[in-house]
Amino acid sequence: MDTSALSLSVRGIQKRFRGISVLDGVSFDLQAGTITGLIGANGAGKSTLLNVMTGLLKADAGEVFLRGAAIGAVPTFKRARAGLLRTFQHPRVFPSFSVGKSIDLAGTSAKAERFYATLHSLFARTPARAPAGPTYTFQKALLAKQDVAASSLSYGDRKLLMLAQVLAAQGTVFCFDELFAGLGPSVIDQVRECIVEIANRGNTVVFVEHNLAVVRSLATRVIFLYQGRIYRDGPAEAVLTDPEVVRLYLGD
């Protein structure tokens, strides 16, 4: 099958931990410019799937394609440079970095980070890259805290910092792992608006989320994972109102 027209594809992903099957033949394609919600109970394999997609875990079988190219053997940092970015369920920030430095770090090009670029800059001052101006209210709020240490941010602010970092890193496929958990209602609206904007610019978004109201308002397509398999995959409303999904996900 021709996967080059697609933004991201996963084919027959299998992953076992100590003999227990966590992902069992997961396949789907994501089109550019779409927002897909990934739902499922705890342990359904959602985070494992994101880890396989971004290369933090190696699949036992199956392949991941980024714009048609097989990337199963490509290390995580090269996938990120190719535009496949993610945030983490448990916020990962760089504790010794300030908010401003964290965002600068994310936005610095791979070329500028090479050591010879450092040596070169010892002798010839290269103009610093102008940082992209803040677009969203949460970014402006973060910028007001740019000298604050990332380690002293609140849980919610750490999540926003991760989002600001992946925005600065300029990807094309964004995976958000429970980004909305722990955020206040007004911030949820801003982040939702931000994600819609990301997709409107032609990027691909896939997000793991337990808050079904957020899923309903954001996703056009929902994939329901159940015990490591795709149980339902379709238009958001159809999947979310499917009686089987409701029964398996929400319980009786």
């Binding site: 940092f77 760089f94 791979a110 500028a112 050591f115």
Partner: peptide, 24 residues
């Protein structure tokens, strides 16, 4: 320098750094 910043980032959080495209 940007190189030194990456060095400190991977000290802080290696998985976070590679996920942002940093060559650890």
């Amino acid at each position: 320098s940007p190189f030194g910043q990456v060095l400190q980032a991977l000290r802080d959080d290696e998985i976070g750094a590679v996920s942002l495209g940093k060559d650890v």
